[in-house]
Amino acid sequence: MRRPRGRLLAESVALLCAAAVAFPLYWMVLSAFKPEDEVLSEDARPWTAHPTLDAFRRVFGQQDFGRYLGNSLLVAVVVVVASALIAFLAAVAVTRFRFRFRTTLLVMFLVAQMVPVEALTIPLFFLMRDLGDVTGVPGVGLNTLGSLILPHIAFSLPFAIWMLRGFVRAVPESLEEAAYLDGASRARFLWRILFPLVFPGLVATSVFSFISTWNDFLLAKSFIISATENSTLPMALLVFFKDEGNDWGGIMAASTVMTIPVLVFFVLVQRGLVSGLGGAVKD
């Protein structure tokens, strides 16, 4: 029963905000499709009459760009899946069990989120080097994708556990008791009943691990030293920042390519995300 005038005003404001928020992305995509002389023109126009794929051609023509894209996807997917599974188990433990140090652990998980990751690059470098030297397992150690995957799992776990708690808790305990009465084993309850119920929450959580992994360029820059075939996407983006003048068209095209997978992922999980975040903090 709100006054239509007020609502109209609110909607205009909302649309204006939407336009303002979307503008940087619009400009990114636009510049990616502009011919180079228009991108580097003093007269920046919000449209182009001559869309071209030149910038994308430069990006994909760059050596191994496809491979970097694949590496980035592989790392992100492994991190998302592994951290979701591990966090799920841990979240079950801290919500469904009562044990000594439970609250300490929870506080630890919160504290762990505050660790400035950039500062850990130094100790992690030596850890990865020694892991490779000592274990000799292929795929672990410097210059491997494993050296990116392992730390990112660790970085995303605390937040994931912290968030998943709410979802696990939202599943009524009576359900659990009923399952046991029906003779279900603990494992069966966990994976067949609880897991599907918590899945939307897992999706919402995985958005964060996906983004932080996908974004990373510090670890990629520091750990992938001589095996360039194991580089990831942000390294490819850096190539277009040149001392002799940035190739803005190429940067925008590469940025577009880098943003699209995340956007797709977001749109796919959008519903779960909105309800998920609500669930996580509602309690």
Partner: peptide, 24 residues
């Protein structure tokens, strides 16, 4: 032969000193 971007050289060379297995 690898042609490394000049702006990454400091970090790469430091890393190479730190990890002989990666070093050129």
């Amino acid at each position: 032969v690898t042609h490394i971007p000049v702006e990454t050289r400091a970090q790469r060379i430091k890393a190479a000193f730190n990890d002989p297995r990666s070093a050129p």
